[in-house]
Amino acid sequence: TFTSIVTTNPDFGGFEFYVEAGQQFDDSAYEEAYGVSVPSAVVEEMNAKAAQLKDGEWLNVSHE
């Protein structure tokens, strides 16, 4: 299960995956970082959410 939350205070020191406002979700980078295949429906969902981000916001993507 993939989830996401919007934050204005990303923790770059941890093992977190963020999408910056104005960027798209990079499923290849996510797969490389976590060894998890990302279904195309999830990629579309995360890109739709990322498109709604305002300046200074980040989308924190995770999975269980």
Rank of each mutant, 00 (worst) to 15 (best):
N60D: 03
G35D: 05
G22L: 05
A48H: 11
V42Q: 03
F2Y: 11
T8K: 11
E31S: 12
L59M: 06
Y34W: 08
S4R: 00
E64N: 14
L53E: 02
N9V: 09
F15P: 13
T1Y: 13
N9G: 06
P39C: 07
E44D: 12
D26M: 06
E20T: 09
Y34E: 00
A51T: 07
Q23C: 12
S28F: 12
L53D: 04
D27M: 12
V6Y: 03
W58A: 00
E45K: 05
S40K: 14
Q24N: 11
L53V: 00
E31D: 03
N60V: 15
G35E: 05
G22N: 06
G56L: 02
S62L: 10
V61M: 02
N60I: 15
K49P: 08
G35T: 03
E16R: 14
A33N: 09
V36W: 05
D11W: 11
A51Q: 11
A41F: 13
G13V: 07
T8M: 11
T3E: 06
E32A: 15
D11Y: 10
E16H: 15
T3Y: 14
A51F: 06
F15G: 15
D27A: 15
V43R: 09
K54F: 05
Q52S: 12
E45I: 09
F15Y: 13
P39A: 04
D11S: 09
N9H: 11
E31Y: 15
K54M: 08
A48S: 10
E16I: 09
E20Y: 10
K54D: 05
E57C: 07
A21E: 04
V6M: 05
G22F: 06
D26P: 04
Q52V: 09
M46N: 03
A41M: 10
Y18C: 05
T8F: 06
A50P: 08
H63E: 02
S4W: 15
T7W: 02
P39V: 03
D27W: 15
E20D: 05
N47D: 07
N60W: 15
S28Q: 14
V6F: 04
A50I: 08
L53W: 03
A21Q: 08
V36K: 04
S40R: 12
V43N: 05
V42A: 05
T3G: 07
Q52C: 11
E20N: 07
E44V: 10
E32M: 14
E32T: 10
A41D: 11
G22Y: 07
V38M: 05
A21V: 07
S4N: 02
S4G: 12
Q23G: 14
N47V: 04
G35K: 07
E32N: 10
E32I: 13
W58T: 02
E45D: 08
K49Y: 10
A50K: 00
N9E: 12
A51E: 10
W58D: 02
T7I: 09
K54N: 10
E64S: 14
H63L: 06
P10N: 02
Q24M: 15
A51R: 06
S62I: 13
A41R: 11
H63Y: 13
S62G: 07
S37F: 10
A33G: 03
Y30S: 01
Q24F: 12
V19Y: 01
E16F: 15
E45C: 10
D27C: 15
A33L: 15
F17A: 02
E57I: 01
Y18Q: 07
E31Q: 13
S40V: 13
D27R: 15
A51I: 06
F25K: 01
E57Y: 05
I5G: 07
L59K: 00
V19M: 06
T3L: 11
A51S: 10
P39D: 02
P10H: 06
H63R: 03
V61S: 01
L53F: 00
N47H: 03
I5L: 12
E45P: 00
A29K: 12
E64T: 15
N60G: 14
D11L: 11
F12S: 06
A50C: 09
G14N: 09
